[in-house]
Design a protein around this nucleic acid. Structure first.
Ligand SMILES: [Zn+2]
Ligand SMILES: [Zn+2]
Ligand SMILES: [Zn+2]
Ligand SMILES: [Zn+2]
Lengths: 167, 167
DNA sequence: CTGTTTATGATATGTTATAACATTATCCTA
DNA sequence: TAGGATAATGTTATAACATATCATAAACAG
């Protein structure tokens, strides 16, 4: 699900035995540093939770994850702030529909981030980050604009069922 | 916003001085009766709240409405049940994105209900019920199915801004 | 080392929603 | 019309997600 372009090409790295999560975290740290912000320990714990989960997680599920995995008792408030930070760094997306959070699939790529669209399984919260063709998006925009509205964000979310969960 | 086809044609009715809300309620009552259910007083109070609001309302906003308008103290539980009933009668739609409820725009028409799509203003919760062309929907479905997912419901919701609220 | 900024903590409360069980209203039939 | 079934509503508790506010700690620049 994650686009590993960069990671796979980075085997010259000194830490070739790192897990892919660790590599992404390292990449994200550099990304933040380049933007003048910091991926602190707690921020990277939350990000790890999202990276290692195949489904979207709520803030409270991330609290559980950090408690179980790192013996770290994070208050809800902190997790929300951390998620807000990660989103502002384009490392994480918030899913309005599911009220949950996912790591960006392109977190490790250099290519600029396309406007994301998400398919969210209603039953298991598995999320696929897809890219809808410009022509569909364009027709959609035009229909919407005829009604006197415009999209709040290019991010679209669709309530779906995944293959495993069926109908 | 409401499709008044039937209502406008019904001026032969004995109650020609009724407000349009009252006419819709009357129509809805007949609709329920025809389906063997009943639009009770409380159910129609909740429906009135949605009919008279230009924007989507939460269950708790409807509680306030009924208290202020009808001096009726409805418990949250009842309002949720009533909304569920109204939805099952196709009189009301639940907006997953906004976590709010709207009266169906076609509540007073006889033509069968098309699968609805909604434009929801992020800022003021104004809602427009639109109908997206089959060709767009079809391309969308095919994109989604290529990713191994399928839409949970034909109802789509888009986070927008309305004309008044701008960007 | 001191003041400022940034990150995090603590507590309270708001908002949406459901579970479980109790009570009341309505309606049918004997 | 009594009695029983079904439908509608009430009550209470609690879950899940989220924000407001004020306090403290860590990082860092001068
Ligand atoms: Zn992304
Ligand atoms: Zn699924
Ligand atoms: Zn409708
Ligand atoms: Zn608006």
């Amino acid at each position: 699900m994650i686009c590993y372009n960069i990671i796979l090409m980075s085997h010259l790295s000194t830490a070739s035995q790192m897990t892919s999560t660790a590599k992404v975290i390292k990449h994200a740290k550099q990304h933040c540093a380049a933007r003048g912000s910091k991926l602190t320990e707690k921020r990277s714990q939350v990000l790890k939770g999202l990276l290692e989960s195949k489904k979207a997680l709520s803030a409270y599920e991330l609290i559980d994850y950090c408690r179980e995995k790192f013996d770290q008792q994070l208050p809800a408030m902190s997790v929300y702030r951390i998620l807000e930070f990660l989103e502002s760094e384009n490392l994480v997306h918030r899913l309005e529909l599911a009220k949950k959070y996912v790591a960006c699939s392109h977190i490790a790529c250099d290519h600029t981030h396309e406007t994301p669209q998400f398919l969210i399984c209603n039953s298991c919260n598995t999320v696929e980050e897809i890219s809808i063709s410009n022509s569909i998006i364009h027709s959609l925009r035009s229909t919407i604009s005829k009604a006197g509205f415009h999209l709040a964000s290019p991010q679209l979310e669709f309530e779906c069922y995944c293959e495993a969960c069926g109908a």
